[in-house]
Amino acid sequence: MNLRRLDAATGALSSLSLLAAFIALWWFASRSGWVNRAFLPSPADTAASLVQGLAGGELLGYTGATLGRMLAGWVLASALGIALGALIGSSQRARTWIAPTLEFIRPLPASAVMPLAIALFGLSGGMVLAVVAFGSMWPVLLATLHGLAAVHPRLREVAQALQMGRLSFITQIGLPNAMPDILSGMRLSMTVSLIVSVVGEMIASQNGLGQAILLAARSFQASELFAGIVLLGAIGFASNAVLALAERRLLRWQRP
């Protein structure tokens, strides 16, 4: 246990050192004139814009809008992905029939279906939510599908011997067996939902960090632009950390 804590502390210190070196390089590049300060503000100017925007500006409202859109799309995508993945993964015949269709649709980037979504829903929040759900559903669906398909044959034989129905097999054997895959897929899905939310806000002119970043870029407000980017990175880091902690707690039974 002490060795694990020492390794964790060493890793955290290394990460902080790398972050400090990156900020120092950023500060030096902005102060030395390598890049015009109209395009590369200093870390201090970025931090000042971030604090000002969160304390009294519109940045806090933009952040709330993006977080709400990201979480709503992620929840919807997770529910759809788990349900569809469980139904398809629990049936060998369904996997055989539907797998080619899934492989055709899966590589489509969410941005590629935005014109279709705009035609169906218009430039609205519902359009962005639909695209976010579509783009972030695939990691969860494929992870659930893989987890259900990887159930040991002996467990399937036990389920048949006990005359378990399909729903009972999914809830009592399939989903618990697939839980590690599902949780990993949900972590990846959260990142995708954040990315697609920002892109959708930029394209559909919806209230959020994507629109704030786009407006700052168009008006050459570099510090506000970088403040939005830093905030997006912080949101992605925090959401991933929370889901990683939840994953470790839910999968404690796997650790020796």
Score class of each variant (00 low, 15 high):
N2I: 09
L6E: 11
L6D: 08
A9W: 13
L13V: 11
S15I: 14
L16R: 04
A20H: 04
I23S: 01
I23E: 00
L25D: 08
F28P: 00
S30D: 05
R31V: 00
W34S: 07
N36Y: 06
A38C: 03
F39M: 13
F39R: 10
S42Y: 06
S42L: 00
A48M: 04
L50N: 01
L54K: 03
A55C: 10
Y62A: 15
Y62G: 12
G68E: 13
R69E: 09
M70E: 02
M70S: 15
V75D: 03
V75L: 12
L76N: 03
S78L: 05
A79T: 00
I82S: 05
S90F: 04
S91C: 08
Q92M: 00
R93Q: 08
R93E: 08
R95S: 10
R95E: 09
R95A: 03
A99K: 10
A99F: 14
A99V: 01
P100T: 08
E103Q: 15
E103I: 04
F104T: 15
F104R: 06
P107V: 12
A112Y: 03
M114I: 15
A117N: 01
I118H: 11
I118N: 11
A119E: 00
L120Q: 14
F121R: 07
F121C: 07
L123E: 03
L123D: 07
G125Q: 10
G126R: 00
M127P: 02
V131M: 00
V131H: 05
V132N: 01
F134T: 07
F134E: 04
G135K: 01
G135T: 06
S136F: 08
S136C: 11
M137E: 05
M137R: 04
V140H: 08
V140Q: 10
L141T: 08
L141C: 13
L142N: 12
L145R: 12
H152A: 11
R154L: 14
L155P: 02
E157R: 07
A159W: 12
A161T: 12
R166I: 00
S168W: 04
F169D: 10
I170R: 04
T171I: 07
Q172S: 13
L175Y: 02
N177M: 06
P180T: 07
L183V: 11
L183T: 10
L183Q: 14
S184A: 15
S184Q: 07
G185W: 09
M186I: 14
M186E: 03
R187F: 08
S193E: 00
L194R: 06
V196P: 13
G200K: 04
G200D: 07
M202L: 13
I203M: 12
I203H: 05
A204C: 04
Q206M: 09
G208T: 12
L209C: 08
Q211A: 11
I213S: 12
I213R: 09
I213W: 05
L215K: 05
L215V: 13
S219L: 11
S219N: 13
Q221M: 12
Q221S: 13
L225M: 14
F226A: 04
A227M: 01
I229R: 11
G233Y: 06
A234T: 13
A234E: 06
F237H: 04
S239I: 02
S239W: 09
V242G: 10
L243E: 09
E247C: 05
L250S: 13
R252T: 13
